[in-house]
């Protein structure tokens, strides 16, 4: 990279401070987002209770353990609302209006700029609710809080966030070819709902799909197992490997896609 690293950190600070200031002009949004998070969480708990019925296991997971998975899902959903959605959904309009030209001319990595320019505080309720649910449910399920265990959890949560980012980025970058008024990234949100439940709750075919093709298992199940202190070394390594590969792929795909970008009206 042509620039010193700390320029990136300083840019990030400016980006998020300015978006925060802009977003805080619309404070009524906070009430709406709170309502949405509470409604979604209540609905998810309701459906989870229906799924358990009178049995005590779902795919071998107890109620409290499944709540950890739901917590990780809520956390990632908050991350999506806070960072991924506000940034990556704009690629479409940049392509449509030709303003991607200006992004490409900036003396900063274009993928970095596109991915981090905005920060929406309206994702915070989801982040807080997710973290709260994880802590509460993990305690109920009797998870331990040793330093090594917390470090592994943090590492696997970070790798799941990287995988989620890369998936979003790959799909959003497709808009270089397919443009329409709304964009394909929303599609991902619907499919990732599968991550609300431990991957072992699915039949074998879907389980394979959610591990190998669409890495839902690495998004919520693997970090949840780390939180519960029972993740195996092979799964942890696989998660890190998938994260590295996904990030590399997103990087390569962006360079490749830019070759096909011909600006608006040309």
């Amino acid at each position: 990279m042509p620039m010193p690293r700390n320029r990136y950190w300083r840019s990030l600070g400016r980006f998020w401070a300015t978006s925060l200031a802009a977003e805080l002009e619309y404070q009524a949004n906070m009430a709406i987002e709170l309502l949405a998070v509470v409604g979604n969480l209540a609905g998810s708990l309701f459906v989870l209770a229906l799924l358990y019925g009178r049995s005590s296991r779902l795919g071998g997971w107890s109620w409290d353990e499944a709540l950890v998975v739901l917590g990780v899902y809520t956390l990632l959903d908050g991350l999506t609302s806070a960072v991924l959605q506000p940034n990556l959904s704009k690629i479409v309009s940049h392509v449509q209006n030709g303003t991607l030209d200006f992004v490409l001319l900036k003396p900063i990595d274009s993928q970095f700029w596109i991915s981090t320019r905005s920060f929406s505080p309206w994702g915070l309720p989801g982040l807080v609710a997710g973290a709260g649910l994880i802590l509460w449910a993990a305690n109920q399920a009797g998870a331990s809080w040793q330093a090594s265990h917390v470090a592994l959890t943090a590492l696997l949560l970070a790798s799941s966030a990287v995988i989620l980012y890369s998936l979003w980025f790959l799909l959003a970058a497709l808009s270089i070819w397919f443009v329409k008024v709304w964009n394909a990234t929303e599609v991902l949100r619907y499919v990732l709902v599968a991550g609300r439940y431990p991957v072992s709750a699915y039949p074998v075919g879907l389980r394979t799909l959610f591990t190998l093709v669409l890495p839902v298992a690495f998004l919520t199940t693997v970090p949840a197992e780390a939180i519960l202190g029972r993740v195996s070394a092979s799964w942890a390594l696989a998660s890190l490997g998938v994260a590295a590969a996904a990030l590399g792929l997103s990087r390569w795909f962006w360079q490749y896609a830019l070759r096909y970008y011909t600006s608006a009206s040309s």
Binding site: L50, L51, Y52, G53, R54, S55, S56, R57, L58, G59, V191, V193, A194, Y197, A201, Y202, P203, L206
Partner: peptide, 14 residues
């Protein structure tokens, strides 16, 4: 996706 979860869930039997 929900069909997949429900097929293995105790709630459906209940």
């Amino acid at each position: 996706i929900m069909l997949g979860v429900w097929q293995g869930a105790g709630g459906a039997v209940a």
